[in-house]
Amino acid sequence: MIKRLSVSLAFGAVAALALAPAASASGATTIGSVCDDGQVIELVFNGGGNFTPGHFVGGTAIYVTQSIHATREFTPNGGATQVTYFNVDKPHVVGDLVRCNFNLTRVTPTGTFHAFGTSTFFITPAS
């Protein structure tokens, strides 16, 4: 479960977040972000891959992940914090890109998961 959250979080969030009702029903992860184009967004991710696209909550745009740079911290209940770094880039970045910052905290039965960093996206137009 922590591994899946680790991969999903890399797609962006800075605001205090909670799982959206529709997302929690489907097992998806919802993450908020603040982007360098001035947008504050929420994206839903329905997969566990590094480059799973995010679906814009409240619209039809798709945020196609181009890179993820994150710090992940897991503090097990009663234990010391474990820190890992996650950096992945597509080899051929395409399109007009937007960079988004995220900061995500989730409390699980085994401890607290915190991740923060940046993701770069290509945004598909609404259809």
Rank of each mutant, 00 (worst) to 15 (best):
F74G: 00
G49S: 11
S6Y: 06
Y63H: 04
Y63S: 00
V7C: 12
F74K: 02
T81G: 01
A15W: 11
N101P: 03
M1R: 12
L19C: 02
Q82F: 04
T71L: 05
L9D: 11
R72C: 04
T30L: 01
L19T: 01
T30V: 04
A22E: 06
G49K: 10
V44L: 10
Y85F: 12
G78E: 08
A70E: 11
T65R: 05
T81S: 02
K90F: 09
A13H: 04
G27T: 02
V40Y: 11
N101D: 05
T52L: 10
G59H: 08
D89K: 07
T75D: 01
V83E: 03
I68G: 13
P125F: 09
A15T: 15
R106F: 12
A20I: 02
E42F: 12
P76R: 15
L17F: 15
K3E: 14
G38V: 03
F86N: 06
R4S: 06
A115Q: 09
H55C: 05
I31L: 10
F116E: 03
A115T: 07
T110H: 15
T52Y: 11
S24D: 10
F51S: 08
I2C: 10
N103L: 05
Q82T: 13
E42Y: 14
I62G: 02
I123M: 00
V40F: 12
N103S: 10
Y63M: 02
P76H: 07
S67G: 08
P109V: 14
F45I: 11
Y63Q: 01
V94M: 01
T30Q: 03
H69K: 11
V64F: 00
